[in-house]
Each structure stands twice: as C-alpha cells, then as structure tokens.
C-alpha cells in the first residue's frame, strides 16, 4: 500500500474507474444474452408468451442505460473519477488514467451499440446457425 500512499486513494477504485466502459459492456452482454436466452426458452415452452416485444424491450432498455452510462463516462470522466477515487484529478498520472479510461469507454460504447442494434434488425429467437 505504500506505493499509493502519496495519492491517498484506493487501488480498487482506480481499477473500476479504468474499466468503467468494459464493466458496463460486460453487464450489458450478460443481461442481453442471458435475458434473451431465458425469454426465448419461455416463448418456446408456452405459446401465449410474446417473446419479441419482451426481448426488444429488455435489450433496448439495457442498451440505452449502459450505452448512455458508458458515453457519459467518456465525455465527463471527472465525475466517475471523483466517485470511485474519492478525490479530484491532480497530476499527469491522473491524466493518463483518464485518457485511457475515455478510450476504453468509447470503445465499450461502440460494443454496446453493436450488440444492441442486432435485436432491432434480426428476428429475436431465430436459429441462426
């Protein structure tokens, strides 16, 4: 811990800050794929259940939420910084950290968008392979 004493901030917080985008992306994938699998199984077993709207709703909401959070992190990084590291950014090292975090969050936003947009285009429970 002496390595970070001069910054007086938690290591875990820095890690989560850095991985802001990817963590949101992972959460989005889990909810989207997991939810779709579950709902398609329910749709297969009971004929009344309308999978299409439920799945589109689920994935749309998840994509929107995680996408916006990720974009927000990329555009206004100082708020997540204060939230997770409990202080303001002070020096060049913090600047590097923020730069990497913005890049990752931007890429994660793209990933979330890619994963989310397919449900709008393709039939939700089709066997593609």
């Amino acid at each position: 811990m002496s390595l970070f004493a001069r910054h007086d901030s938690p290591v875990i917080g820095a890690l989560f800050f850095l991985l802001w985008g990817p963590i949101l992306w992972a959460g989005h994938l889990t909810i989207a794929y997991g939810g779709q699998a579950l709902l398609c199984t329910l749709a297969a077993s009971s004929a009344d259940f309308d999978a299409a709207t439920a799945i589109r709703l689920l994935i749309g909401v998840t994509t929107l939420a995680s996408g916006l959070a990720s974009v927000f992190g990329a555009v206004v990084p100082r708020l997540p910084f204060r939230l997770l590291l409990r202080r303001r950014p002070v020096d060049a090292d913090d600047g590097t950290l923020i730069g990497i975090m913005r890049l990752l969050s931007a890429l994660a936003s793209l990933g979330i968008l890619f994963a989310g947009v397919t449900t709008a285009v393709l039939p939700v429970c089709a066997q593609g392979r």
């Binding site: 890049l103 931007a106 890429l107 793209l110 890619f114 947009v117 397919t118 285009v121 393709l122 039939p123 089709a126 593609g128």
Partner: peptide, 25 residues
C-alpha cells in the same frame, strides 16, 4: 487505431445484418 477500425467494423456489421436478414429468414 480507433476510428478506422470502428468505421470498418460498423460497416461490416451493417452489411452482415443486412445479409442475415435477407438470406436466413
């Protein structure tokens, strides 16, 4: 490193989705 791949991948995604919609279903 970032914009070019993002653009290419987006274009490919669009083309792929277009094809999947057409051919399989």
């Amino acid at each position: 490193g970032v914009f070019f791949p993002a653009a290419v991948l987006s274009a490919l995604l669009g083309y792929g989705l277009y094809l999947m919609q057409e051919s399989a279903f």
